[in-house]
C-alpha cells in the first residue's frame, strides 16, 4: 500500500516491568504523525491491552503498527499457547489470569472488550498450541 509505514515491537512474556513500553512507542509515533487525539487515545488503549495480553497470557510475541492515511492498524501476534474458547475470552469479566497477576490489577477480563470497544474493525484468531493473532484498525477519518 502506498504511503504506508510499518513498525514492529517484540513483546516478552511475563515482563511486567516493560509492559506498556511498546504501546508508549506506538503512541509517540502516532503523535508525531499528527493524528487526532481521539484516534491516538483509542490506539493507545488497544496497543496497551494487546501488549499486556501477550505479556500475561502468551509465551511471547510482537505488536505491529501499520500506519497509512486511512487507517491505524494494530496486529498482535503471539506464539502460543492459544485461546481455548475465544467467545468466552471476549466476555467482559472473564479471565484466565492467576491470582498473583490479578493482585497487580491485571486480569480483570477487560482487555479484549476494551480493544473491541475502541476498534472500528476487530478480528481475532486463535489455535491452541499455535498462537493467537489479533488484527484491529481504527478509521482515521471517521473518528
Amino acid at each position: 500500500m502506498p504511503n504506508s509505514l510499518t513498525y514492529s515491537f517484540a513483546v516478552e512474556a511475563g515482563d511486567f516491568n516493560k509492559g506498556g513500553d511498546a504501546a508508549g512507542k506506538i503512541k509517540k509515533i502516532l503523535k508525531l504523525a499528527g493524528l487526532p487525539s481521539t484516534v491516538i487515545r483509542r490506539a493507545a488503549i488497544i496497543a496497551y491491552e494487546a501488549e499486556m495480553n501477550i505479556v500475561i497470557h502468551s509465551v511471547g510475541g510482537a505488536l505491529r503498527l501499520n500506519l497509512n492515511p486511512e487507517r491505524v492498524e494494530l496486529i498482535a501476534k503471539d506464539s502460543g499457547p492459544g485461546i481455548t474458547d475465544v467467545s468466552l475470552a471476549m466476555q467482559e469479566g472473564y479471565s484466565t489470569a492467576s491470582d498473583e497477576i490479578r493482585a497487580l490489577g491485571f486480569g480483570a477480563g477487560m482487555g479484549l472488550p476494551n480493544i473491541r470497544h475502541n476498534a472500528d474493525h476487530f478480528a481475532i484468531e486463535s489455535q491452541v498450541g499455535v498462537g493467537t493473532t489479533l488484527e484491529v484498525y481504527i478509521d482515521v477519518n471517521v473518528s
Partner: peptide, 22 residues
C-alpha cells in the same frame, strides 16, 4: 489497570493501591 486505561480522562489524578511499574 484496564479500567483506568479505558475510562480515565487525560489530566485526571488517579487514586490507587497499585504501586508497581505498570
Amino acid at each position: 489497570l484496564s479500567d483506568v486505561m479505558g475510562n480515565a480522562c487525560a489530566g485526571s489524578v488517579w487514586i490507587t493501591i497499585q504501586a508497581h511499574q505498570n
